[in-house]
């Protein structure tokens, strides 16, 4: 069930990127998609009723969640942050040049 919700979140983000005309809405949709994937990654490592993955004296043999996805998600969050920053920077410059955020008006190129 949780996985389906996660997929729906991902599709909401993808829909936003593909359909929305406003540059800022595209950036927000990208952020939603990114969060959906990070959430999925965390869910992959989750076990019901398990504890945090740190060894403490006297608690060596308890069930733990998988720590590797958490480490990966940290990296992926940093990458997502830098992409969002680059997107916002380019959006600011685009607004300076074209005076609009509407991508149907930002079309000097043909391809």
């Amino acid at each position: 069930m949780v996985y389906v919700l996660c997929l729906i979140l991902f599709l909401v983000g993808l829909y936003g990127i593909l359909v929305k005309k406003n540059v800022l809405k595209i950036i927000i949709s990208f952020a939603i998609m990114d969060y959906a994937i990070n959430l999925f990654f965390i869910l992959v490592g989750y076990k019901n009723g398990a504890s945090f993955p740190i060894f403490i004296k006297g608690k060596e043999n308890v069930l733990m969640v998988d720590p590797l996805p958490q480490a990966l998600v940290l990296t992926s969050i940093v990458i997502g942050l830098s992409i969002t920053m680059l997107m916002v920077a380019i959006a600011i410059r685009l607004y300076e040049k074209y005076g609009t955020f509407d991508i149907s008006e930002i079309r000097k190129l043909k391809g």
């Binding site: 595209i26 990208f30 998609m33 994937i37 999925f40 992409i83 040049k97 930002i106 079309r107 190129l109």
Partner: peptide
């Protein structure tokens, strides 16, 4: 203006690709 527009297009498509790969 052309460079920025091309870069934004490339950026959006590239991030969709990266998201699919990460998924």
């Amino acid at each position: 203006s052309e460079e920025l527009e091309a870069a934004f297009k490339y950026l959006v498509l590239g991030t969709i690709a990266s998201s699919l790969i990460l998924l």
